[in-house]
Design a protein around this nucleic acid. Structure first.
Lengths: 207, 207
DNA sequence: GGCTGCGCTAAGCGCTCGCTCACCGTCGGC
DNA sequence: GCCGACGGTGAGCGAGCGCTTAGCGCAGCC
């Protein structure tokens, strides 16, 4: 496994699905700007400038500034869901699968922190239709984690009183990594992933 | 204990320290607007409108829109720190104090969710000086929780490998309540507080 | 070599933003 | 009964926003 994969939860080259090249450069610039300043504080001139283009160029590839956020959010949620599904569907005990899910999910939130910030914290800036689409993806994210917790309870591996509440707390813990993590900090994404996997196994009372 | 106190972590009447009355009405309106839409998406016209005043009235009581955010953030952080200090300094075992700290901190984040959202998620909208002041308060918040965890480790009540990392995770878990909690949800602030206190005691390996 | 289509830019439109200013009603002190 | 202080308003300023449009340079085709 390459270093890039280790810090991105399996993501080799991000945004490679966005074409043509100019559209990808604009999208990457938007991710950086949105993560740094927030969607509403970011101007289309700032995005275009970071991509080395004129403000008008943005509107050749995207209809509006909101469409840019929508695309980022959609691709990011797909990726996050992918990561959790890979962990949930692998072979192994519920304990192993939960630890894998948490550590890779956390590695993604820390390693690709700019993307994760936009994905997790700029949801409210989307219009009703786009938000509804993303909320549906988030429900699937919740379902994946809840499934592993339920498996662990059923097999007697876990000791959990409130499955839905505990699932919510586990996801909440992972998601908030995108808020506080910084590359200047004392921990690598891998270390945070390992620490969090341990903490979550304690939360579910894994034996 | 009254219902108001139960859902606000001891806060009887919020913002009573803000005078005169018009300044408090503007500030309460700003908290609602910032929590709902975010600082940058909120206009001074919106804030004034919610307070039943003209846009110009805002500038009689506050120098800028940012000063409003600063005051909200400062008062909110003071309150949050108060809540944690009360729990940390009470008599009892580290286990009891940590459970008390987490449940009351979470009750505040859930019960006064609008305030907590602004306090926890609009920090980046502040200028450098104001942000530095708030960051110092947040370090004190961290120190309070870390103190309890260290006490528990010293007394043998807790089993924690990484004290700083675990403290960070505990606080992160509590803070993120402000993001997902809603009054329409299935849980009351008290229920979330109790659930989270239990989860945190598991995280620190309380016997 | 001339033509066409496309990615891109320079300029700028209409609008709304944070904020200001000239003015006004009310109320306590004398 | 008049006056100054103060909290408030209506109108609007300059700036910067998201987005549009007319036109330009260049690669590909005949």
């Amino acid at each position: 496994m390459s270093t890039a994969e280790e810090t991105t939860g399996g993501e080799v080259e991000p945004w490679e699905e966005v074409t043509p090249d100019a559209a990808r450069r604009l999208l990457v610039a938007a991710v950086e700007a949105f993560a740094e300043r927030g969607y509403h504080a970011t101007t289309t001139r700032d995005i275009a400038g970071r991509a080395g283009m004129s403000p008008a160029a943005l509107y050749i590839h995207y209809k509006t500034k909101e469409e840019l956020l929508h695309r980022i959010s959609r691709i990011g949620h797909d990726k996050a869901l992918d990561i959790l599904r890979s962990a949930a569907q692998r072979e192994g005990t519920a304990t192993e699968r939960l630890a894998d899910a948490v550590s890779s999910f956390v590695r993604w939130h820390a390693g690709r922190r700019t993307t994760a910030r936009v994905v997790q914290y700029e949801l409210d800036a989307l219009g009703p239709e786009a938000r509804a689409e993303i909320v549906a993806l988030r429900r699937q994210v919740d379902a994946e984690v809840r499934g592993i917790v339920e498996d662990g309870v059923a097999s007697g591996e876990f000791d959990v009183l409130d499955v839905q509440g505990t699932t919510l707390a586990v996801l909440s813990l992972c998601i908030d990594v995108a808020r506080w993590f910084t590359v200047d900090g004392p921990r690598t994404p891998e270390e945070v992933g390992a620490l969090y996997a341990d903490l979550v196994l304690r939360m579910v009372g894994a034996r």
